[in-house]
Design a protein around this nucleic acid. Structure first.
Ligand code: FES
Ligand code: FES
Lengths: 150, 150
DNA sequence: ATCATACCTGAGTATTTTTGTCAATTATTC
DNA sequence: GAATAATTGACAAAAATACTCAGGTATGAT
């Protein structure tokens, strides 16, 4: 029941993107890679997927980069995770063409179904906007502390 | 976010064990393997772990097998999954000696923490007893249907 | 135009985790 | 003591994950 690092990266990267963004200026993937210390090439893949799923928009050429495709308050965490192809259902039989080994009347499927729904609902209840707010809050507290020290 | 088949097997096997059990007679792992169509050797490993975690008790020798270590209503699903070493926390930093790649103030950890708690709480809210009840219910309906056909 | 920038693509590899097998042993009953 | 069934630890196959690489293409600035 571990979230793939891919999904973790995607969420972190989205927060970074939102934080680095300044009106009108796309954020280059290189900056995000630097900030989050992730492989540039790998991040490119993730953003390609995020783009295909209309989470971000790309701007090519010099000065280009990525921009949120929608308002941050309209981007849910579960959407981000879906985009990078991380499944949120705990067993394969709950997906198209998927099957578990259990034949006959499966006794456990109900549990996994319930579990999957909780996971989905929880992650769908959180928006990128909320993450950004939290990040900003942490940053300012941190800055205050630094100032206090100096 | 998929549950390992190991964990799925463990839960299914526990239900099987409880269903096959008749007063005083331990259930051999071979019977469970047959019923669930799982590898005998692999199941052995799982039951070794379940035994170490006091979920089942073993009886050696001919006529031996496994027995629930406690009342079915006192065995929670999350305990079964814990026993076979499937983690229920979504990111590694939430475990002893575990670390994610994220340094500084991590913005996303709160989400994963919340997610982990939901997963844990949900699986802890279900007991083996409930699964057995459900299984029996399904069996009787199924038998009724068979009788109806004949 | 051409050059630097930065996105875009798909194939390929390396690593880790998961899943499962095997052989040999120990305890118990008949 | 022979058959049964759990017990152990090492090993191997397979799958999923994580990452790299080598090219491309669009765009803006000089
Ligand atoms: S059929 Fe998928 S869990 Fe049983
Ligand atoms: S430190 Fe574990 S998620 Fe950020």
């Amino acid at each position: 029941m571990r979230l793939s690092t891919k999904a973790q990266y995607a969420v972190r990267a989205m927060v970074s993107l939102a934080l680095l963004y300044e009106e009108g200026k796309p954020v280059s993937i290189k900056d995000i890679a630097k900030k989050e210390d992730l492989s540039l090439n790998y991040l490119e893949q993730l953003f390609a997927m995020l783009r295909r799923n209309q989470i971000v928009k790309s701007v090519r050429g010099p000065g280009g980069g990525y921009v949120l495709a929608r308002d941050a308050c309209d981007i849910r965490v579960d959407e981000i995770i879906d985009s990078v192809e991380e499944t949120l259902v705990p067993v394969s039989c709950m997906e198209k063409n998927g099957e578990c080994g259990c034949f006959e009347k499966c006794v456990t499927r109900n549990i996994w179904q319930g579990l999957g729904e909780r996971i989905r609902n929880f992650l769908a209840s959180i928006t990128l906007e909320e993450l950004i707010q939290e990040a900003r809050k942490k940053m300012t507290t941190h800055e205050k502390l630094s100032v206090g020290k100096a």
